[in-house]
Design a protein around this nucleic acid. Structure first.
Lengths: 348, 348
DNA sequence: CTGTTAGCGCCTTCAT
DNA sequence: ATGAAGGCGCTAACAG
């Protein structure tokens, strides 16, 4: 404990102000029961001393820690040439959460669960925070269940398997249905294939459902399962594109489960001389920042990532405020037309 | 306190194990003085109860909170069409820090200082963490000074004005010199202009210095100040490009202070029919993920953002471990050649 | 309106 | 090797 950093305590403030710690505490929390005079007096002493209440002590004394934990899977695929790709999506959510939290005066703790460590990390985090926002697939379901009994939790983009937690999801089904319909009805492409993500991803499954619904609505044949599937990484998109190329014939259009895979596919296809969208139309899902910079611009479904983050905090606060029953919220998605679907839309 | 969430305490564990809390505490910290038998016994009881020590209590009892705070400026410019742009840079640093922290078993609290709030937020954060990593320009220097006396701090990308804190910087000067030299010596462009960022940005200043050094080394005329300057946003890059266009004549090449401004400039120039790099060569600084997706790919200087994040944690831990004197570390940057400088490098 | 007094959960001597 | 007791800084009843 090499601490040259001596922080003043509530006692010093009280003594210096000639009052009891109770009054100081009251002032700290803007509670009634203090005369305006002494309140001012105390306030000024706090300023003078540069007093900052110890969060630990507060937490212990029964109050909240004033911290919310965000848990995300650490999806970074070391096989990727640059580790950048997976970040964007979560980072946007984190940013949204961070801002909402700050408005409420509470801090945000972030934690990425390295594949294995799930349980351990989650518990360690849980002991430091008042509530948890957990991204689907970052904590094994068993552990999630036990976690949820210890601490208020909001699950992001997850299926509703666990009771007693709040759920927050983007309208994957609707979004996927919208792009599919666009391809089918507007562009009238003869074939529209679907490329899924990990089979255990609720997002991927919901998007596939939306795709199927759109097909059914157009009286087209509805497949039982995705045409092909990757793992939501750009690398898997590249792999899939190569498999497709080796098949000889190309589908006229393909709805890809997320942007990253769509990136990978487009790269490979274009580098092999295939024209996008003239020969194959491609759409993504998420609307990552990069989507608009691609050549051609990627038509995709925009997830309200910031809002997801912000809303998750709101839900948690409601819960912490003593909410009766957990909620389940779905945020809308939005079809974003660029050029990769065949539209001539100019994005700039 | 609508808490149906009952967490077991060290007392429950002790009672259930038929020992005193002291022993439990010893086990918790892997301290000697406990027989192997009781140690096992206690451990199993903890498992059984799903016991997790309260971080607040620990903090209070003199130990550390096990949390490090990251403070960044919330640069999001509402005037930008999409708020994405500013994120990438910080997010990478955060990611790096987050990982390094997790390896050390400590958590990371992130906070973005909304323009005004600086001081307040910083203090609130400071009470929750053991140490602080602060990005330049996120906290006013006065406040930073007082903060630094209360809590161990690492300053990122900041000038060394404050004593008693650690400094961590990327080699901006060297990087800028390297691109400039590339333009001058390799491409032999007759003119090489420099576009700066905010005048109060240490990064911007250092990069300008590097640019000047390279010019001097080539016996070229060295300007007193940047040719023009923006505020590091894409929007300011667009504005600058328009100004340049209105001048009539274009410089053959320009070293831009960061990637975002370079993006903005390229967009405008290209949309006005100017050929990059045939008519104007452009380089950036940072190597944001998007840089490689642009047409043409942006030649830039790569900052080791992840490493910056990781290293900042390491420095802080050294300090928390009772380091004698604060350090000052500079991480190398790397010239990344793509097409916007005139190279024919194929990045895929 | 103000002060007193218990704890909160854990760590840490000091005894045993 | 183990247990008992005090205290960390603060909040939350209670008394005055």
């Amino acid at each position: 404990m090499p601490s040259e950093f001596e922080k003043p305590t509530i006692y010093e403030v009280a003594e210096r102000a000639g009052v009891s710690i109770a009054s100081v505490s009251r002032v700290l929390q803007n509670k009634p029961g203090v005369s305006e005079a002494t309140r001012k007096m105390i306030t000024s002493v706090m300023q003078e001393l540069g007093y900052v209440p110890s969060n630990a002590a507060r937490g212990l004394a029964g109050c909240r820690a004033g911290i919310i934990g965000l848990i995300f899977p650490d999806l970074d695929d070391p096989s990727m040439e640059s580790g950048h790709e997976t970040l964007l999506y979560f980072d946007e959510i984190i940013r949204g959460a961070q801002r909402a939290a700050r408005q409420e005066g509470i801090a945000v703790l972030i934690a990425a669960t390295h594949s294995a460590s799930g349980r351990e990390l989650a518990l360690s985090i849980a002991s430091k925070v008042d509530g948890l926002v957990v991204m689907a697939r970052s904590v094994p379901e068993v552990d999630m269940r036990s976690l949820a009994t210890r601490i208020p939790t909001v699950l992001l983009a997850a299926d509703r398997h666990i009771s007693g937690v709040d759920y927050l999801i983007a309208d994957n089904e609707g979004g996927a249905a919208a792009v599919t319909r666009h391809l089918v009805e507007y562009h009238k492409y003869p074939t529209v294939k679907f490329i899924g993500g990990p089979s255990n991803s609720p997002d991927s499954r919901a998007r596939f459902r939306g795709y199927c619904k759109a097909l059914a609505l157009a009286n087209l044949e509805v497949p039982k399962s995705p045409w092909m599937a990757g793992d939501f990484t750009e690398a898997s998109g590249r792999r899939i594109a190569k498999v497709i190329l080796s098949k000889g014939s190309l589908p006229r259009s393909v709805v890809v489960g997320n942007d990253q895979m769509a990136f990978g596919m487009m790269k490979v296809l274009i580098s092999e001389g295939i024209k996008v969208p003239q020969e194959v139309a491609i759409t993504g899902f998420d609307d990552l920042p990069v989507a608009r910079y691609l050549q051609p611009g990627l038509t995709t479904v925009r997830q309200p990532m910031r809002q997801l983050g912000a809303e998750s905090i709101r839900l948690l606060l409601v819960r912490l405020g003593g909410a009766t029953s957990p909620q389940s919220v779905t945020l809308p998605t939005e079809l974003t037309l660029r050029q990769s679907c065949g539209c001539v839309n100019d994005d700039y």
